[in-house]
Structures are given as C-alpha cells and as structure tokens.
Simulated scan of single mutants.
Amino acid sequence: MLWDILTGQFSLDLQGDTVSGTKQETAPQLPALTPEEKRIRDRKLKKERRKEERRRLRESGAAQSLPAKRSGSQLALDYLRGWAEKDENWRFQKTRQTWLLLHMYDSDQVPDELFSTLLAYLEGLRGRARELTVQKAEALMRELDEASGSEPLPQGKTQRIRQVLQLLS
C-alpha cells in the first residue's frame, strides 16, 4: 500500500475525507468530528486567518490607513450630547453612564460646558446608580471636610460635588 501511495496510484478526496485509489483498497476511516470539535476547529482556523490578515496589513502598511478607534471618554461625551439633543438614535448604554458617573468630578474629562447637561442627565438617574452616586458624593464631601487643612481638592471639583449633592439629595 505504501508503494501505491509513492507511485501516485492513490488520490485524496478532500470533500469526503477519504482516500481512494485504483485498487479497491480504502484507507481506514477517521472518526467523524463531533459538532463541538468542529466548532472548536473552525474557531481556531478563523483566528489563524485573522492573525495572518493582520500580519499582512502590518507588512503592507495598510494598518495606518484604518480609522482610529474613538476613546471611551469621547464615546461617553457623545452619548451625553445625543441624550441632550434627544437624538432618535440615542439609547441607554450602561458603560457610557458608568464612565460619566466615574469621571463627572474631573473637569479635564467632562468639560464645564457639558457639566450642566450631565446634571440634567443625573436628574433622571434612578435606582442603585442614584444611591451610589449620592454615597460617593457624600464620601467625597466628608473627605473634603477632613482634609480642609491639608491638600484641598481643586475648587472646580468641590463645586461639582456640591452641585451633584444638591441635585440628588
């Protein structure tokens, strides 16, 4: 049988996964893959193809021509603007809201011109998000009161904390 393979008397049928030749001999059948094994194999092949494509793009220099992804801060601020403009495509996004709640006291992250919009957004805040926002603002105010002699918080941050507390309490 090895001689037949070496002399080319066998051909490989890729679609049927069988080996056939001019003689009536057949190769031993490999066990059929289970659906889970096929899924895993397909995922690995897809991953390898994507990796190869990225490598080719890097080598050709085409990767620089792809549009840059927008940062989380830009996406969150656009989300807030869309809410304010009552954009028909606007929809609630937990990750954007979370980013806004985490960074709302930082004037570098949320510019002053958008802070009033953010306060209007916070008016509609409900449930656990509202509770946690109030708790965090109260904790920051306590921290501010305790640290009044040492490093004081920036005036803008202090004012923002007071505005949020006044609005939500």
Rank of each mutant, 00 (worst) to 15 (best):
38 K>I: 10
79 Y>M: 05
60 S>W: 08
79 Y>H: 14
126 R>H: 09
102 L>D: 04
121 Y>F: 15
53 E>N: 05
128 R>Y: 10
57 L>V: 01
146 E>D: 08
35 P>Q: 11
115 F>Q: 01
25 E>F: 15
116 S>W: 03
53 E>T: 04
59 E>S: 11
138 E>Q: 13
65 S>C: 09
28 P>S: 10
78 D>Y: 09
85 E>M: 15
63 A>Q: 09
55 R>D: 02
95 T>P: 01
76 A>L: 05
67 P>C: 08
113 E>D: 11
123 E>H: 11
115 F>C: 03
86 K>Q: 14
106 D>W: 03
56 R>K: 15
53 E>K: 11
24 Q>K: 13
144 L>Q: 10
99 W>A: 01
136 K>T: 04
143 E>H: 13
75 L>G: 01
116 S>V: 10
53 E>L: 15
41 R>W: 08
119 L>P: 00
27 A>R: 08
41 R>I: 08
101 L>S: 01
120 A>I: 05
121 Y>K: 09
103 H>C: 04
115 F>W: 04
56 R>P: 00
72 G>M: 10
45 L>W: 06
122 L>H: 02
48 E>S: 12
140 L>T: 00
58 R>G: 02
114 L>W: 03
61 G>S: 10
83 W>C: 05
92 F>L: 14
95 T>W: 09
34 T>R: 11
75 L>A: 07
36 E>T: 09
57 L>P: 00
60 S>G: 06
41 R>M: 12
34 T>K: 11
61 G>C: 10
103 H>E: 05
125 L>W: 04
101 L>D: 01
41 R>V: 05
135 Q>E: 12
35 P>E: 12
99 W>C: 02
86 K>C: 10
129 A>M: 06
94 K>W: 08
47 K>D: 07
114 L>P: 00
116 S>Y: 05
43 R>Y: 08
132 L>P: 00
61 G>Q: 10
57 L>M: 14
150 S>N: 09
92 F>D: 01
100 L>G: 01
132 L>N: 07
131 E>L: 14
150 S>G: 07
143 E>D: 10
93 Q>D: 07
147 A>E: 07
110 V>M: 03
29 Q>E: 13
135 Q>T: 03
108 D>N: 10
141 M>I: 04
133 T>W: 02
54 R>P: 00
32 A>Y: 03
